[in-house]
Design a protein around this nucleic acid. Structure first.
Lengths: 128, 128
DNA sequence: TCTTGACTTGGAGTGCACTCCATATGTTAA
DNA sequence: TTAACATATGGAGTGCACTCCAAGTCAAGA
């Protein structure tokens, strides 16, 4: 697959795809004789993984380390697992923060909806 | 309350507190005759709100707009509600992405735990 | 073969959200 | 009053994650 095809398939810019490869967030991609990238199934798997992890805010740094470990074979299984467990912990914390914010947003939206009827919010705190 | 007290209470740096005020993410804080900040209950309410929203990744830009609207009184009730609804929608989308990533992490961690017993991961995709 | 468009690289630039710094002024205990 | 420390301001610097650009190379159709 060409970079254009992969870019469209995963909705990631070509610049970002090259960037991810350059920094080692995904392993080096196969090339044609001419030097053009030729993405394999496996490359695509890495890109899909990168996209998923990044969409949840997993830091680039952690993904680079994971990729480096993965390329060192089965002896890094424990290290990789620990890395993932650590990121999962952070992710769960972030999700809790978001849940709290969501509750607050729901509460405030509810108050605003009631205020739209009366036209005033004065019985509430100014920043409610 | 002094900036030091507020900083400790909410675990936000003094620099960040001043920054938030400067950019209008919170309304101007009261001052003593000497020009030092003297945070009121209301200021603290804004700071708490800012902290909560920022912890969930709500962009600074949206919070500045919300703060500006709030200072214009009851006629901005609908605008404020719409702003909050929009941010809630984005937040829910982000939470869904995170849920997907969490599922993937759980799946992979499970695979790694099984691989730790056997010592090999070869029956799985390299990036699993 | 030639032209057009896609692709390459290294490096510079961008946007966001802080974070740090220099210099000046306010506050408080001795 | 004076030393020591807290706080003020405006502006520069940082870290992260892209994003853009220039200059050159490769590939495919007329």
């Amino acid at each position: 697959m060409t970079i254009t095809e992969v870019s469209k398939k995963y909705d990631i810019s070509q610049d970002t795809l090259r960037y991810y490869e350059r920094i080692g967030l995904i392993p080096a991609v196969n090339r044609t004789k001419g030097g053009m990238r030729d993405y394999t199934e496996e490359s695509c798997g890495w890109i899909e993984l990168a996209k998923c992890m990044r969409s949840a805010g997993i830091p680039i740094e952690a993904l680079i380390e994971y990729c480096a470990l993965a390329q060192q074979g089965d002896r890094t299984i424990t290290a990789r697992k620990e890395l993932l467990v650590e990121e999962r912990t952070k992710l769960l914390e972030k999700m809790e923060d978001m849940k709290k914010t969501l509750d607050k947003l729901n509460y405030k939206i509810d108050i605003y909806e009631k205020a739209e009827v009366s036209g005033v919010l004065s019985w509430e705190k100014p920043n409610a």
